[in-house]
């Protein structure tokens, strides 16, 4: 049985799809058979971030409607073994997702995969609720600013009350906090909430802190998940997060302002 992980946030533009791509790729790199599903019907992005937009023939909605089989719609990633993608439909809207349809697809995938990563759309409406309904675990992506934190709090409430596990009175969804676009120097200047501020407000375990990094934008535009960039701090931070998701206890990095080395200071002074 696959473990279903939803990547959600409430607020848009905080890095859900970037995170879905990175975490999914990271899990596959660890040898786990993983599929990432784009639930953002009508605003399909995952295929771009994964660099497989030209290979989408059938999509998630086609499978739900019985117009294509799963094997026709699932795209195998070219870079990473064990990694598969199910794209969203760009020409439809969220009403195309039905609970029965989603359940059928997830049930079928469950027997074949170790992890199903559901990339949720923004908001708290039907699309987002459908993405989180069947989840076993949730990665709540939050930027260190007040509106993002409040929306994450709202989505945590929905995870508690409107998921299948909540409705059936089962063990609640395991929640993970992932803080993205973290900039320690702006935190020091008081422009950004600190990790402890966010943890204090949301009160869920911290999965990882992804530093703000130019590598993220570059990776998105190149269609390669940032976790593949082992030189970038963001890539390393995502690798750490995947390790923690798999149960390893490792310390958090990139939380403090990087001390400038001797040469950097020298160069900085001369520039």
């Amino acid at each position: 049985m696959a473990k279903i992980i939803v990547v959600t946030s409430g607020k848009g533009g905080v890095g859900k799809t970037t995170t879905s791509a990175a975490i999914g790729t990271g899990l596959a790199m660890q040898g786990h058979r993983t599929i990432i599903i784009d639930f953002d019907v009508g605003l399909r992005n995952l295929d771009l971030i994964m660099g497989c937009e030209r290979r989408v023939v059938y999509d998630f909605v086609n499978v739900i409607n019985g117009e294509a089989s799963l094997s026709q719609a699932v795209i195998k990633d070219k870079r990473t073994d064990n990694l598969y993608i199910l794209a969203a439909s760009q020409t439809r809207d969220k009403d195309a997702l039905t609970q029965e349809g989603v359940q059928k697809v997830l049930d079928e995938l469950s027997t074949n995969y170790d992890f199903i990563v559901c990339d949720s759309p923004a908001g708290i409406e039907k699309g987002a609720q459908m993405a989180l309904y069947f989840a076993d675990e949730a990665i709540v992506v939050t930027n260190p600013e007040v509106s993002s934190v409040r929306d994450s709090d709202r989505i945590l409430g929905i995870l508690q009350s409107k998921s299948k596990r909540a409705e059936q009175g089962k063990e609640p969804i395991k929640e993970h906090l992932l803080i993205t676009r973290y900039n320690p120097s702006r935190v020091n200047d008081g422009e950004m909430l600190s990790v402890s501020d966010v943890e204090d407000i949301l009160a869920i375990p911290l999965l990882g802190v992804i530093p703000e990094s130019e590598a993220v934008l570059k990776a998105s535009n190149q269609g390669a998940p940032v976790i593949l960039d082992s030189q970038a701090t963001a890539g390393q931070a995502y690798s750490d997060a995947v390790q923690r998701l798999l149960g390893d206890e490792i310390g958090h990095r990139f939380l403090n302002v990087e001390k400038k080395g001797f040469f950097k200071r020298l160069l900085g002074a001369s520039a």
Binding site: R150, D153, R154, G157, P172
Partner: peptide
């Protein structure tokens, strides 16, 4: 026993 979240 659990947090009462925004909107609840």
């Amino acid at each position: 026993t659990r947090p009462v979240r925004s909107g609840q």
